[in-house]
Design a protein around this nucleic acid. Structure first.
Lengths: 118, 118
DNA sequence: CCGCATCCCGCTCGATACTG
DNA sequence: CAGTATCGAGCGGGATGCGG
């Protein structure tokens, strides 16, 4: 089994189907964007986190971008939003099982990234 | 060993280091962009390929984008350019060992992408 | 055959101010 | 506390034409 066999999952035709809609592009699209990884990383490290805590932890992010990114992650099923109608209002974000399946893959990508940085 | 342990490779501080330079961001930056994956996919499927053949295979790509993407991939050590000074000129591109290490990870991402599409 | 140079557009993202 | 609304800059990417 050559290394190429792994890619044949999504490149099994004479013309690469990745140009159109393919699962790999879907995956990369979901975790793409400037703030997605920092958000996932923060939530993974800290567990359920409140909105403002998240904003303070992720340096440089604005309300606009944090809200937008969180909404997309929620729509894609990676993040769960829980609202507690207390006083004052409390909203917590946490990772879902879908994300837990993704984490080891990102870990592998990290290892690969380390090697290539040399 | 929890799923989280995988991410702790690149998120081992109180404040997520991914916001600054981290190997995961590096990796995603390298394979990011609209045409990187289609190029890697085509080269993986077909082996060493000439410039024009690559351009015909990757539907919709322009000279500008193909050249730019190939140069970046070459600079990042994912693609090797070989020029044969024949008549007419022949230039072939192929994947490097660095890329072969990446392929199984992309395969895993593809599997994850398939599952989340449902 | 294999590119490069230039111009231009849309979309992401940032800054700022405001609200339930 | 947890967001919204709006505006504009910057950059990735597309179109076109030219050069070795």
């Amino acid at each position: 089994m050559s290394a190429s066999d792994h890619l044949n999952h999504f490149c099994s035709e004479n013309i690469c189907p990745c140009q159109e809609k393919c699962p790999l592009s879907t995956a990369l699209g979901i975790i793409g964007g400037k703030w997605k990884i920092p958000i996932l990383c923060a939530l993974n490290y800290d567990g359920p986190t409140r909105y403002n805590a998240l904003r303070k932890k992720i340096k440089g992010v604005t309300n606009t971008m944090l809200v937008t990114s969180l909404k997309e992650l929620e729509a894609d099923g990676l993040v769960l939003r829980t609202q507690y109608n207390e006083m004052p209002l409390r909203v917590e974000y946490k990772l879902t099982e879908n994300t837990n399946n993704l984490l080891p893959i990102l870990g592998n990508l990290t290892v690969w990234g380390k090697e290539i940085e040399n």
